[in-house]
Amino acid sequence: MITLNITISGLFQQILVGLSRTTILFIVSSGMSLVLGVLRIPNVFHGSLYMIGAFLAYSFANFLGGSITGFWLALILAPLGVAFISFIVERGVFCRLYEREHLMLLLFTFAFMLVFGDLVKLIWGSDYRSLNAPAVLQGSFSIFGLPFPRYNLFLLVIGPLVAFGLWFLTNKTKIGKISRAAAVDREMVGAVGINVSWVFAFVFIIGCFLAGLGGALVAPTQNITQGMDHSIIIEAFLIVIIGGLGNIWGALLGALIFGLTDSIGILVWPQFAIVFPYIAVVTVLIFRPKGLLKSVW
């Protein structure tokens, strides 16, 4: 069953594949972590937004004629569409529920996940969709004699950019600093005359934007289908937990652990590759139940 014929170049290739997977996981789970850290909502429909992001990217790209500019525009418009949906949901419903118990919030977001899942089925049908990357990013080039898709390299560039952007937003801008303060003590932030409700809305929208961005970015690499939401949400959730709730760097670390154990697991024991990340998560949580990095809670 276990055949260990791992070559160095094969390992290197799998690490690169794992890192591009990490990029997607990081983008999605950092958004979740942000929402969890500041708003204290375990947002289950984050995965639905990821799925909607992928479907929107497909629709926008097709609507804009499938040209190169169409693809780039879709990559920007799809997350914006998701952010708009989240804006409506937050202002319409969530801003009334912040004081409820976590369990209630969890179930409430789950209700949204059910609704969004069926709405996607209603709008896009239950067929597979696929989106082609523009010609520049298609094809692959060889690393140590093994092919590596160009699109994955593009993802490896995007990942650090998003991480830098998030760091800049939370540490260098005023609204970022306010939201970090609100994560620690929301009443105090309100007491100094800041409208906490709108700060929350802002953070929620940024988090959901990231979910949509992750979905739009993943669209060219896999089939866009129903059920994408179910698999990504549990992964993002576990990444956020092992990283430390609300800690963006924790989300990066967690995504690295998850992405790399998955891709190296394929080399070691392909049949059980999906088991490896879960083993890693459980191991981390047994020794550090509150996550690897400091949680903001």
Binding site: R100, F108, V115, L122
Partner: peptide
Amino acid sequence: EYWTLVLGIILMLLI
């Protein structure tokens, strides 16, 4: 076939 949609809405009203 959209029964989870109905379930979701019921759940929201319930909460």
